[in-house]
Write a protein that binds this DNA or RNA. Sequence first.
DNA 1: AACCCTATCAACCGCCAACGG
DNA 2: GCCGTTGGCGGTTGATAGGGT
Length: 329
Amino acid sequence: MGRSPCCDESGLKKGPWTPEEDQKLVKYIQKNGHGSWRALPKLAGLNRCGKSCRLRWTNYLRPDIKRGKFSQEEEQKILNLHSILGNKWSAIATHLSGRTDNEIKNFWNTHLKKKLIQMGIDPMTHRPRTDIFSSLPHLIALANLKELIETHTWEEQAMRLQTEAAQMAKLQYLQYLLQPQPPNSMAPNNLPNNNNIDQITYDNLLNSLSSMKDGQILSTSQFGNLDHESIPFDHMPDLQVPCQYQTPMMNKDMFGENSSPTSVWNIPSTASPSPPPQQQSGAAVPPFTETSSNNYMGDACRTSSYEGGTSSFWPEVLLEDHPLFHEIA
DNA sequence: AACCCTATCAACCGCCAACGG
DNA sequence: GCCGTTGGCGGTTGATAGGGT
């Protein structure tokens, strides 16, 4: 047993492909199909290894490849899929027609990963980060706030502080909504009896996330579509108490119109545990169940028991917990 | 203009599973 | 069942472009 020797063979060309080489490869495959990749280079008159030819074809020359910038819709889809599938780039690519796994991987590593980190969300678990670095943007904002105090009136400071607090609350709410939760979740008694956190709201949240520019720190305007009409901000303080919800395991546009029932984000209106979501036949991804949760999310989902419906999460640092907050206030 | 730094992405590397003799 | 071959995948690298100083 051993690695394929094809790439170790000396004398074969490496590095960027020339237009002539591309032409040879395309011409050959269009005429004969690729067949055995190992045999192809010789047959096509290329001084390359089969692996290099395969990669060039699948990542660049294939006629069905879509090039150019990723759309907001694609970006949102990648975020959704990555939260479920992790770094399974080829699996993610199957849901984005015309995009290669390599392209998606690059896009993730250069854009989306950074964006999530900026938001204080762990790009691997899609959950709020609790380490010191995750709070950096907030601390910087607070530092800026402190600086403002020295140059502004008390009224101006108070107004500014209020805005910052609202911003933090919204950030927390966003993070809370993005928090992966297990099945059989309990609804907190103190939330309104409605289903406001549904697919549309979730889509809005992800749109907010997607529309952020690289390096941008959250601003209140980023949540423009999350107002009192669409989400229960009146209950924001309650979000710090232990509570659970079912989470969306997939977005409706991920698998087309017939997505799994788990694509709807339900907040049960009673305190009784809700049944686990049922899987629809043909769903590309299994429903979120305790036994399969390892494949989806982080440890918390895997290890928690939800029979009794009681658990806690959200180890988020509150704005008022920060020493600077009191110093300013 | 020259240099440096950063972002981007095509291409490579190494590992692994599937397959067939 | 063993072993070699092959294709596929995810991680990483390095060339290049573009922006900033």
